[in-house]
């Protein structure tokens, strides 16, 4: 089949401005985008710079934006996408070094900043740690991360908030928090409870959508928020919002955005900053009634929330099990 590739290029030595270059190649049906790019590089234009290695979605080298979204070139089958013209760009949220090669140093530095290694409570046992298989199996989902940077490329929060630690590092953080052998979970979660941490995620599912390995970073971020709240880290707007939300839905069966906002933000100053918005809404007759409407089955909803809470599974931690064993 005939393929048209529209590649966004940039050569820092010749000219700092990015430009588009079109390539037309004929390739077999089963080709991936990487196969096609390599064909271009080997037969048409040797100056095209890109990273690639394994060709089977395990090394994470060939992350790039394909038709606007981050993907691994080696996992993008050309027959699956619109062949009219495939646009290929370097990943987002990262400076370009050359063509499709981006500067990953900030990416790695954020990863290093979370202390990305196991921190057990004590010296290791003589044999292996004895832990339930499902806890190990559960980690497979995060260990599957190949650090390609696709999630970081398309992260909405990062695009406006450079201090956000980002989905890759947070998924890695979860890998330790969820590991029964790691004992630094409180310390880790405390750090992630601050600026740039889990509450800076905007819950847009971009990372979940573009991840080529189904790591679902956002789901891990949500899980960490939950763990924090379960540990009692509730003095922040995010936790206050979650608790207020549960309470409002428990009381009325439905949400009341105004009350939610009032109970989520901290202090008078922050509340005042929203007052203009509220006044404008009031002017347009948009503020909800003073007494919220209550749905028919509100008490049943409250019962559901309470009973579900009692069914929440407890996390297994080796050091806690040991401590409790000693006490018992």
């Amino acid at each position: 089949m005939d393929i048209k590739l529209k590649v966004r290029r940039q050569n820092p030595e010749a000219d700092d401005k990015p430009f588009w270059k079109d390539y037309a190649v004929e390739v077999p049906e089963y080709y991936t985008l990487l196969d096609a790019l390599l064909k271009v590089r080997e037969e048409v234009d040797e100056t095209l710079a890109l990273r690639c290695s394994c060709r089977s979605h395990i090394c994470g080298s060939c992350g790039m934006r394909v038709n606007g979204h981050a993907a691994l070139a080696c996992k993008t089958k050309l027959s699956d996408i619109d062949q009219g013209a495939v646009t290929v760009e370097p990943m987002g949220n990262m400076p370009v070094i050359r063509d499709l090669v981006v500067d990953l140093e900030p990416f790695w530095n954020k990863l290093y900043s979370i202390k990305p290694y196991l921190q057990p409570a004590t010296d290791p046992p003589e044999r292996e740690y004895v832990v339930p298989n499902d806890t190990m199996f559960h980690l497979d989902g995060v260990v599957n991360c190949i650090m390609c940077g696709a999630c970081v490329s398309d992260c909405e929060s990062l695009s406006v908030n450079p201090i956000f630690i980002g989905p890759t590092a947070l998924a890695k953080e979860y890998r330790f928090v969820a590991d029964p052998r790691d004992a630094a979970d409180r310390e880790r979660l405390t750090q992630m409870n601050g600026p740039g941490g889990v509450w800076d995620c905007t819950h847009c599912f971009q990372c979940v959508e573009v991840c080529p390995k189904d790591v679902a970073p956002m789901e891990r971020i949500m899980a960490m928020r939950r763990m924090m709240m379960d540990m009692g880290m509730e003095q922040n707007n995010g936790a206050k919002r979650a608790n207020a939300f549960m309470d409002l839905v428990g009381s009325y069966g439905r949400l009341d955005e105004t009350r939610l906002l009032m109970r989520s933000v901290s202090g008078l100053g922050e509340l005042m900053s929203f007052s203009k918005v509220g006044l404008r809404a009031l002017w347009k007759g948009k503020l909800p009634p003073l007494r919220p409407h209550r749905i028919a089955g509100a008490p049943a909803v409250r019962r559901i929330l309470e009973r579900a809470r009692n069914q929440r599974p407890r996390r297994f931690k080796v050091h806690q099990a040991q401590e409790e064993g000693v006490r018992a």
Partner: peptide
């Protein structure tokens, strides 16, 4: 569905995924 509850807008799920699933299944 006048008796249906809020979906939780992702926040109930963030706090308690099982609760979110039950409220919506309702």
């Amino acid at each position: 569905l006048t008796g249906a509850a809020c979906t939780g807008a992702g926040v109930i799920t963030e706090r308690d995924p099982f609760a979110g699933d039950v409220v919506n299944s309702r």
